[in-house]
Simulated scan of single mutants.
Amino acid sequence: MTQHQLQGRNEQEILWFQRRSALKAAAAWVAMGGLPAAMAQQRSNIVELRGDALLNGSRLQTGQTILTGDQIQTGPGSNLMFVIGNSAFQVRENSLLKVERGSSINAVSLLRLLTGAVVSVWGKGNSRAIILPTLTAGIRGTGVYAEVFASQGNRSYFCNCYGTVDMESNGEKTVSQSSYHQAFWGEVEPKDGRRLTPANAINHSDEELEFLARLVNQQTAWEIAGRKGIKDGSGKISY
């Protein structure tokens, strides 16, 4: 188990992937053929639902299907894991997000996170983004962690765990290229003249990304490289 720093989150939220129910659900998802088989058999794309969640304002049931265009809200102590297209998502408790439609009903163009946090792995694709209150990230195929800190005026946190991401906050832009967790704050007010400031890698683990990547037949950058770096938010793999 890799080390992780917590800020305003509890250990159980980060260790969801160790639960027997999550392991069994993921194994069943992969064994049954993943999303293509679920679509062909008209099965749900929810891998696991633990606790209460709302789908477009109504209580979400495990047999339902989450579609692009849907709004999702999770309650206290809940955990939601689902797959759309070539992307996999794990939604933390007390989160509110909207999954907006891309070129088809099975393509996500935009994930709008209003409150809470989400871990996600995205396959290759164009014209996709994650929008937080003070930060926007254009993604091309990557694993990321995003969180809104309501107690800090909706200050937004984003970690490009691996891949290439186009970052923007109130007109300030940068390109993040990461092999191992490059993290940013989207500041509510400029800090030393900057809206995008460096951050540590907090509130998520390597194992979460690896778990989600397997659901969509992928590997993380560090799994492919066979080595990791120092989880300091710099984005670099050790050589």
Rank of each mutant, 00 (worst) to 15 (best):
N106F: 09
G77I: 03
L55F: 08
M39A: 11
V118C: 12
I202V: 14
G193D: 07
M167Q: 11
E93T: 07
I130Q: 00
A129F: 09
I84P: 06
A225M: 10
A53F: 06
F17R: 04
K228F: 13
N45A: 07
L35F: 10
L97G: 04
L23N: 12
S103K: 15
V188S: 03
Y157S: 01
K191I: 10
G125W: 00
E100P: 01
V91Q: 01
L54W: 07
G51V: 04
A137T: 07
T2N: 13
H181V: 01
V99D: 03
Q218T: 10
W222H: 07
N86W: 05
S120L: 13
G63K: 06
G69N: 10
E208R: 00
V119I: 14
G51A: 04
G125P: 02
A25I: 03
A146P: 02
Q90L: 09
N10Y: 09
T62M: 12
I46P: 04
G233F: 05
P36T: 03
I230L: 13
K173L: 12
T136G: 11
L35I: 14
I139F: 00
S103P: 08
R140F: 09
G116P: 09
N94G: 03
Q71S: 14
L80Q: 05
Q152A: 14
L113Y: 02
A38P: 01
L215A: 01
G77D: 05
K173E: 09
V83H: 02
L15T: 06
R112K: 14
V175K: 08
H181E: 12
M32G: 13
Q152K: 14
A150Y: 05
E93C: 02
Y180L: 08
E93S: 04
L54T: 08
Q18E: 15
E223T: 10
N217S: 14
T2I: 12
D232M: 03
T65P: 03
A28T: 15
T62P: 15
Q7S: 15
E11M: 15
F149Y: 12
L15Y: 10
G138D: 07
G123D: 11
V108W: 04
M167G: 08
R101V: 12
A40E: 15
N160R: 05
F89Y: 13
D70H: 11
G125E: 08
T74D: 05
V99Y: 06
G102I: 09
R92G: 01
D206S: 11
N154E: 11
G229F: 06
Q61Y: 11
A53D: 06
A201I: 01
G153V: 02
A27I: 09
I46W: 04
G77F: 04
E172W: 09
N56M: 00
Y239I: 14
T2F: 02
R92Y: 09
L209Q: 14
E48D: 10
E210K: 13
N154A: 10
L215P: 05
V121W: 08
R101E: 13
G138Y: 00
E147Y: 08
P36Y: 07
R19W: 00
R214W: 04
I237K: 01
M39T: 15
A22Q: 05
Y157G: 07
N126T: 15
N203E: 08
R128N: 00
G69W: 12
V118I: 09
P76S: 13
F211V: 06
G163E: 06
